[in-house]
Protein backbone atom coordinates (compact mmCIF):
# COMPACT_ATOMS: atom_id res chain seq x y z
CA UNK A 1 0.00 0.00 0.00
CA UNK A 2 2.61 2.55 0.95
CA UNK A 3 4.74 1.85 -2.11
CA UNK A 4 1.91 2.71 -4.52
CA UNK A 5 1.43 5.94 -2.62
CA UNK A 6 5.01 6.99 -3.09
CA UNK A 7 5.08 10.35 -4.86
CA UNK A 8 7.51 8.99 -7.46
CA UNK A 9 5.12 6.26 -8.54
CA UNK A 10 1.96 8.32 -8.34
CA UNK A 11 0.20 8.07 -11.70
CA UNK A 12 -1.85 11.21 -10.95
CA UNK A 13 1.14 13.50 -10.62
CA UNK A 14 1.52 15.50 -13.79
CA UNK A 15 4.80 15.56 -15.65
CA UNK A 16 5.17 19.33 -15.50
CA UNK A 17 8.20 20.49 -13.58
CA UNK A 18 8.33 23.25 -10.98
CA UNK A 19 10.41 25.23 -13.49
CA UNK A 20 7.55 25.09 -16.01
CA UNK A 21 5.14 26.26 -13.32
CA UNK A 22 7.47 29.04 -12.20
CA UNK A 23 7.68 30.41 -15.71
CA UNK A 24 3.88 30.35 -16.15
CA UNK A 25 3.46 32.13 -12.80
CA UNK A 26 6.12 34.68 -13.74
CA UNK A 27 4.52 35.44 -17.13
CA UNK A 28 1.14 36.15 -15.56
CA UNK A 29 2.76 38.27 -12.87
CA UNK A 30 4.77 40.35 -15.34
CA UNK A 31 1.73 41.01 -17.53
CA UNK A 32 -0.29 41.99 -14.47
CA UNK A 33 2.34 44.37 -13.14
CA UNK A 34 2.62 46.12 -16.49
CA UNK A 35 -1.14 46.49 -16.68
CA UNK A 36 -1.39 48.05 -13.20
CA UNK A 37 1.55 50.34 -13.89
CA UNK A 38 -0.30 51.67 -16.94
CA UNK A 39 -3.64 51.88 -15.13
CA UNK A 40 -3.67 51.64 -11.31
CA UNK A 41 -7.45 51.08 -11.39
CA UNK A 42 -6.73 47.58 -12.74
CA UNK A 43 -5.38 46.53 -9.34
CA UNK A 44 -6.70 43.12 -8.30
CA UNK A 45 -7.60 42.27 -4.70
CA UNK A 46 -8.95 38.72 -5.02
CA UNK A 47 -7.72 35.51 -6.69
CA UNK A 48 -8.46 34.88 -10.35
CA UNK A 49 -10.88 32.02 -10.84
CA UNK A 50 -9.15 31.24 -14.12
CA UNK A 51 -5.52 30.65 -13.12
CA UNK A 52 -4.01 28.00 -15.42
CA UNK A 53 -0.97 27.20 -13.24
CA UNK A 54 -3.51 25.76 -10.76
CA UNK A 55 -4.49 22.92 -13.09
CA UNK A 56 -7.72 22.07 -11.28
CA UNK A 57 -9.06 25.57 -11.98
CA UNK A 58 -9.09 25.00 -15.77
CA UNK A 59 -12.48 23.27 -15.93
CA UNK A 60 -13.88 24.70 -12.71
CA UNK A 61 -14.12 28.44 -13.41
CA UNK A 62 -17.05 30.24 -15.06
CA UNK A 63 -16.17 31.61 -18.49
CA UNK A 64 -19.17 33.93 -18.69
CA UNK A 65 -19.23 37.21 -16.76
CA UNK A 66 -20.67 37.05 -13.29
CA UNK A 67 -23.96 38.95 -13.13
CA UNK A 68 -23.59 42.04 -10.98
CA UNK A 69 -26.64 42.70 -8.87
CA UNK A 70 -27.76 44.30 -5.62
CA UNK A 71 -28.55 41.93 -2.77
CA UNK A 72 -32.17 40.98 -2.14
CA UNK A 73 -33.67 40.93 1.36
CA UNK A 74 -32.56 37.43 2.38
CA UNK A 75 -29.00 38.17 1.16
CA UNK A 76 -28.78 41.15 3.53
CA UNK A 77 -28.96 38.75 6.47
CA UNK A 78 -26.87 35.86 7.72
CA UNK A 79 -27.61 32.75 9.72
CA UNK A 80 -27.31 33.19 13.47
CA UNK A 81 -24.74 31.21 15.45
CA UNK A 82 -24.03 31.28 19.14
CA UNK A 83 -22.80 29.32 22.09
CA UNK A 84 -25.64 26.90 21.47
CA UNK A 85 -23.66 25.90 18.35
CA UNK A 86 -20.05 26.11 19.53
CA UNK A 87 -18.47 25.32 22.89
CA UNK A 88 -15.68 27.61 24.05
CA UNK A 89 -13.20 24.72 24.19
CA UNK A 90 -13.61 24.06 20.45
CA UNK A 91 -11.15 26.89 19.75
CA UNK A 92 -8.32 24.87 21.31
CA UNK A 93 -7.19 22.25 18.79
CA UNK A 94 -4.60 20.83 21.20
CA UNK A 95 -7.03 19.40 23.78
CA UNK A 96 -9.32 17.27 21.63
CA UNK A 97 -7.70 13.93 22.45
CA UNK A 98 -6.20 12.14 25.41
CA UNK A 99 -2.63 13.23 24.73
CA UNK A 100 -0.77 16.34 23.58
CA UNK A 101 -0.29 16.72 19.82
CA UNK A 102 3.26 16.93 18.48
CA UNK A 103 4.58 20.14 17.04
CA UNK A 104 5.02 23.83 17.76
CA UNK A 105 2.11 25.10 19.86
CA UNK A 106 0.85 28.43 18.49
CA UNK A 107 -1.93 30.90 19.20
CA UNK A 108 -3.55 32.71 16.27
CA UNK A 109 -5.46 35.80 17.35
CA UNK A 110 -7.15 38.56 15.38
CA UNK A 111 -10.34 40.40 14.56
CA UNK A 112 -13.01 39.97 11.91
CA UNK A 113 -14.16 43.32 10.52
CA UNK A 114 -16.42 44.27 7.65
CA UNK A 115 -15.29 46.57 4.85
CA UNK A 116 -16.51 49.59 6.83
CA UNK A 117 -14.32 48.70 9.80
CA UNK A 118 -17.16 47.45 11.99
CA UNK A 119 -16.47 44.36 14.07
CA UNK A 120 -18.31 41.21 12.99
CA UNK A 121 -19.79 40.16 16.34
CA UNK A 122 -20.95 36.77 17.56
CA UNK A 123 -20.38 35.05 14.25
CA UNK A 124 -19.07 31.60 13.42
CA UNK A 125 -15.41 31.20 12.46
CA UNK A 126 -14.04 27.77 11.56
CA UNK A 127 -10.51 26.50 10.89
CA UNK A 128 -9.01 23.27 9.58
CA UNK A 129 -5.42 22.32 8.87
CA UNK A 130 -2.72 19.69 8.45
CA UNK A 131 -0.74 18.49 11.45
CA UNK A 132 2.90 19.20 12.33
CA UNK A 133 3.99 16.63 9.72
CA UNK A 134 1.88 18.10 6.93
CA UNK A 135 -0.73 15.34 7.06
CA UNK A 136 -4.50 15.85 7.00
CA UNK A 137 -6.95 13.40 8.48
CA UNK A 138 -8.63 12.63 5.19
CA UNK A 139 -8.91 9.48 3.11
CA UNK A 140 -7.48 11.31 0.09
CA UNK A 141 -4.35 12.36 1.93
CA UNK A 142 -2.27 9.18 1.92
CA UNK A 143 1.19 10.66 1.54
CA UNK A 144 3.84 9.09 3.76
CA UNK A 145 3.81 11.43 6.74
CA UNK A 146 2.42 10.34 10.09
CA UNK A 147 -1.09 10.99 11.35
CA UNK A 148 -1.00 12.36 14.88
CA UNK A 149 -3.54 10.46 17.00
CA UNK A 150 -3.80 13.53 19.23
CA UNK A 151 -4.58 16.04 16.49
CA UNK A 152 -7.67 16.27 14.26
CA UNK A 153 -6.90 19.77 13.01
CA UNK A 154 -10.39 21.26 13.25
CA UNK A 155 -11.58 24.17 15.40
CA UNK A 156 -14.53 26.53 15.75
CA UNK A 157 -15.22 29.73 17.62
CA UNK A 158 -17.76 32.51 17.92
CA UNK A 159 -16.30 36.00 17.50
CA UNK A 160 -16.48 38.36 20.46
CA UNK A 161 -18.34 41.67 20.68
CA UNK A 162 -15.31 43.42 19.20
CA UNK A 163 -14.91 40.85 16.42
CA UNK A 164 -11.98 39.08 18.10
CA UNK A 165 -11.21 35.41 17.76
CA UNK A 166 -8.42 33.18 19.06
CA UNK A 167 -7.33 29.63 18.28
CA UNK A 168 -4.73 27.53 20.06
CA UNK A 169 -3.25 24.98 17.66
CA UNK A 170 -0.08 23.42 16.26
CA UNK A 171 1.88 25.01 13.45
CA UNK A 172 1.05 22.98 10.32
CA UNK A 173 3.81 21.81 7.98
CA UNK A 174 3.96 22.11 4.18
CA UNK A 175 2.66 19.10 2.28
CA UNK A 176 2.99 17.66 -1.24
CA UNK A 177 0.16 17.68 -3.78
CA UNK A 178 -0.36 16.56 -7.36
CA UNK A 179 -0.66 19.79 -9.31
CA UNK A 180 2.73 19.16 -10.94
CA UNK A 181 5.83 17.12 -10.19
CA UNK A 182 7.29 17.79 -6.74
CA UNK A 183 4.59 20.34 -5.87
CA UNK A 184 4.43 21.49 -2.23
CA UNK A 185 1.91 23.80 -0.59
CA UNK A 186 3.22 26.45 1.83
CA UNK A 187 2.05 25.78 5.40
CA UNK A 188 -1.43 27.21 5.92
CA UNK A 189 -4.56 27.14 8.04
CA UNK A 190 -7.94 27.15 6.26
CA UNK A 191 -10.43 29.73 7.59
CA UNK A 192 -14.20 29.86 7.01
CA UNK A 193 -16.10 33.06 7.83
CA UNK A 194 -19.58 34.52 7.97
CA UNK A 195 -20.54 38.18 8.10
CA UNK A 196 -23.77 40.01 8.83
CA UNK A 197 -24.87 39.59 5.18
CA UNK A 198 -24.70 36.16 3.55
CA UNK A 199 -22.97 37.76 0.54
CA UNK A 200 -19.94 38.25 2.85
CA UNK A 201 -19.52 34.48 3.28
CA UNK A 202 -15.92 33.51 2.56
CA UNK A 203 -13.35 30.72 2.79
CA UNK A 204 -9.64 31.43 2.64
CA UNK A 205 -6.21 30.30 3.83
CA UNK A 206 -3.86 31.96 6.32
CA UNK A 207 -0.13 31.59 5.70
CA UNK A 208 2.95 32.05 7.89
CA UNK A 209 5.49 34.82 7.31
CA UNK A 210 8.57 34.16 5.18
CA UNK A 211 7.51 30.80 3.74
CA UNK A 212 10.04 29.83 1.03
CA UNK A 213 7.28 28.07 -0.93
CA UNK A 214 5.26 31.25 -1.61
CA UNK A 215 6.85 31.92 -4.99
CA UNK A 216 6.30 28.32 -6.12
CA UNK A 217 2.66 27.90 -5.13
CA UNK A 218 -0.04 28.45 -7.79
CA UNK A 219 -2.86 28.74 -5.23
CA UNK A 220 -1.19 31.58 -3.31
CA UNK A 221 -0.02 33.14 -6.60
CA UNK A 222 -3.55 33.06 -8.07
CA UNK A 223 -3.81 36.39 -6.25
CA UNK A 224 -1.67 38.30 -8.71
CA UNK A 225 -1.14 41.39 -6.58
CA UNK A 226 1.59 41.30 -3.92
CA UNK A 227 -0.27 43.64 -1.54
CA UNK A 228 -3.35 41.43 -1.77
CA UNK A 229 -1.32 38.24 -1.22
CA UNK A 230 0.28 39.82 1.85
CA UNK A 231 -3.19 40.12 3.41
CA UNK A 232 -3.22 36.34 3.79
CA UNK A 233 0.04 36.24 5.73
CA UNK A 234 -0.13 36.39 9.53
CA UNK A 235 2.31 38.53 11.50
CA UNK A 236 4.49 37.04 14.22
CA UNK A 237 3.45 38.87 17.41
CA UNK A 238 5.55 38.43 20.52
CA UNK A 239 2.76 39.86 22.69
CA UNK A 240 0.72 36.77 21.79
CA UNK A 241 3.66 34.48 22.53
CA UNK A 242 3.61 33.25 26.11
CA UNK A 243 6.41 32.11 28.39
CA UNK A 244 7.35 28.44 27.94
CA UNK A 245 4.00 27.71 26.29
CA UNK A 246 3.32 29.01 22.76
CA UNK A 247 4.44 31.33 19.98
CA UNK A 248 1.89 33.81 18.67
CA UNK A 249 0.57 35.11 15.37
CA UNK A 250 -1.84 37.91 14.60
CA UNK A 251 -4.16 37.88 11.60
CA UNK A 252 -7.09 40.23 10.98
CA UNK A 253 -9.73 39.41 8.40
CA UNK A 254 -11.71 41.99 6.44
CA UNK A 255 -14.98 40.94 4.82
CA UNK A 256 -16.67 42.94 2.07
CA UNK A 257 -18.76 45.87 3.32
CA UNK A 258 -22.18 45.13 4.75
CA UNK A 259 -25.01 46.58 2.66
CA UNK A 260 -27.56 46.24 5.44
CA UNK A 261 -26.96 49.12 7.89
CA UNK A 262 -29.41 51.52 6.36
CA UNK A 263 -32.23 49.08 6.94
CA UNK A 264 -31.36 47.87 10.42
CA UNK A 265 -34.11 49.94 12.06
CA UNK A 266 -36.93 48.67 9.89
CA UNK A 267 -35.48 45.22 10.30
CA UNK A 268 -36.60 45.17 13.92
CA UNK A 269 -40.19 45.49 12.76
CA UNK A 270 -39.92 42.69 10.26
CA UNK A 271 -41.27 39.44 11.57
Amino acid sequence: MTSTNSPKLDPLATADSQETLNSEIQDISTTYEQRVKADPKQEETQPRLNYPPYRSSLLRHPTKDLHHTDPETIELHSPAFGHRDVHQLESDLTIQHNGEPLGERIVIRGRVLDGNGRPVRNQLIEVWQANASGRYIHKRDQHPAPIDPNFSGVGRAITGDDGTYEFTTIKPAPYPWKNHHNAWRPAHVHFSLFGTDFTQRMITQMYFPGDPLFALDPIYQSITDQKARDRLVATYDHSITSHEWNTGYRWDIILTGSQQTWMEEEDHDHS
Partner: peptide
Amino acid sequence: TPTPGQTIGPF
Protein backbone atom coordinates in the same frame (compact mmCIF):
# COMPACT_ATOMS: atom_id res chain seq x y z
CA THR B 1 -9.54 46.13 1.55
CA PRO B 2 -11.30 42.78 1.82
CA THR B 3 -9.10 39.79 2.56
CA PRO B 4 -8.72 37.57 -0.52
CA GLY B 5 -10.55 34.26 -0.69
CA GLN B 6 -8.81 30.98 -1.52
CA THR B 7 -10.01 27.57 -2.64
CA ILE B 8 -11.57 25.28 -0.03
CA GLY B 9 -9.13 22.62 -1.30
CA PRO B 10 -9.77 18.87 -1.16
CA PHE B 11 -9.54 18.27 2.59
